[in-house]
Amino acid sequence: MSKVLIYISFILPFSILILSSLKINFFGYFTLDLSETKIFEFPYIWHITTYFVAYFKIFFAIIVVFMIGNEYSNRTLKQNLIDGLSKKEFVLSKFTFIISYCLLMTLVVFIITLIIGMFNTPSQDIYFDTVFSSSEFIVAYFFKILAFFSFCLFAAVLAKRSVFALAVLFIVNIIEWIAYLLLRFKFFDEQTADGIAQFFPFTSMYNLIEEPASRIVRLHAPTNTIVTDYTLYWHEIAIAAGWIFLFIFFSYRLLKRRDL
């Protein structure tokens, strides 16, 4: 079952490949050709793929949560410790598994993006600089999914049961939204609220790759006033990396203090 989910999470990103080559004709009224919007060209494609493919992370998140939940319910965690595995080794082995998946997934997305970009960018525009400008989104993508899966690992270690772990993730997400709305409309202004919210776990992951829609709109209508700061800043990566460390560290601490 989990194998199927892993395959799905690898295959789904390729659906963007299909989408990029698609011309949809709506009953002869008009033709929707997404490639005309320039979103499949360098450098925008880096932003587009990483943003959309990141939504497929839910498949592997389920695997992470069930993997840990099963360790508890099958009591294999207990048996592994009795056999001589240390709690630190246990957490690190799970983290290594997550990192390996993230690296592989990042590589897949990197290759897909290159392919789509190469096919869609007018050939006179393909230079080394244009191709790889904005490629920092790949780094952002890696940190984004790694932070998310680390959170899943922590939630699963905390909740022991898979379903409760998913509930924990969901609740934290909602709490973040409520906290942000309170900060913005009740206590402070937008700037302060954003300043505080960037340290929230889910927001920190989101900030790594902001929505690309307004960027594309601006591309076609430069006078549009909605401005999204989509630039990847080092402090955004630092915050996400901080959460990754905290999630793994507290997973270990929690496990160490717990009687199994």
């Binding site: 207990k78 009795i82 056999d83 001589g84 595995l85 240390s86 709690k87």
Partner: peptide
Amino acid sequence: HDALKKVGAII
């Protein structure tokens, strides 16, 4: 945990 590698246990 290293000592346990030389132990066999069933709980």
